[in-house]
Each structure stands twice: as structure tokens, then as C-alpha cells.
């Protein structure tokens, strides 16, 4: 899967799993922070996202501090998925 398609799927997962009503894929910048300032997501969203990434992409997300870096942005999530699948 190419990176553009992967990022688009990640954004769809974000919109659906986190119930970001009224937003579209275009509203989410690849490099923008998702938590805190960005989309205003919290730790409950992080848990949901971790489960969704495993369910949708077959890639598990480690618990705790390291998940913070993976969830930094759409780019970071895409990188984690690509790296894990390649490894």
C-alpha cells in the first residue's frame, strides 16, 4: 500500500473511531499533532486508536509512553505501521 493510501485509511480510522463528526480527511494535516492542542484528543481516544490500529491494520501498538510518539501525528502512525509490517 502506498503512503498516501495508508494515510488516507488512517484518517478514516481517526474520523470513525474517535467520532470526529463534522470533520473530513482534508481537515487532518499529516504532520499536525493529534493530541492535546491538535484535535483535542485524550487518553481514552489513545486507547481506542490503539485497538483500532490493531483491528484495521493488524499492527499492535505498545502500551504506555512509547504509544505517545506513535500517536504524535498521522505521519508517525503511518511510519509505525509501515515499519512494523516490514519488520
Amino acid at each position: 500500500m502506498d503512503q498516501t493510501e495508508l494515510k488516507s485509511r488512517i484518517k478514516r480510522a481517526l474520523l470513525e473511531e474517535l467520532d470526529l463528526r463534522g470533520r473530513t480527511e482534508a481537515d487532518i494535516d499529516d504532520g499536525a499533532p493529534l493530541f492535546g492542542e491538535g484535535l483535542g484528543l485524550d487518553s481514552l481516544d489513545a486507547l481506542q486508536l490503539a485497538m483500532a490500529i490493531e483491528e484495521r491494520f493488524g499492527v499492535s501498538v505498545p502500551e504506555g509512553e512509547s504509544s505517545r510518539a506513535i500517536f504524535a501525528s498521522v505521519n508517525a502512525i503511518a511510519e509505525h505501521i509501515t515499519r512494523t509490517k516490514a519488520g
Binding site: E17, L18, L44, D45, L47, Q48, M51, E54, E55
Partner: peptide, 8 residues
Amino acid sequence: GPKFASPA
């Protein structure tokens, strides 16, 4: 399986 229980 329980690992796909949705936390949110």
C-alpha cells in the same frame, strides 16, 4: 476476542 473490546 476481548482484545477488540472498544475502550471508548
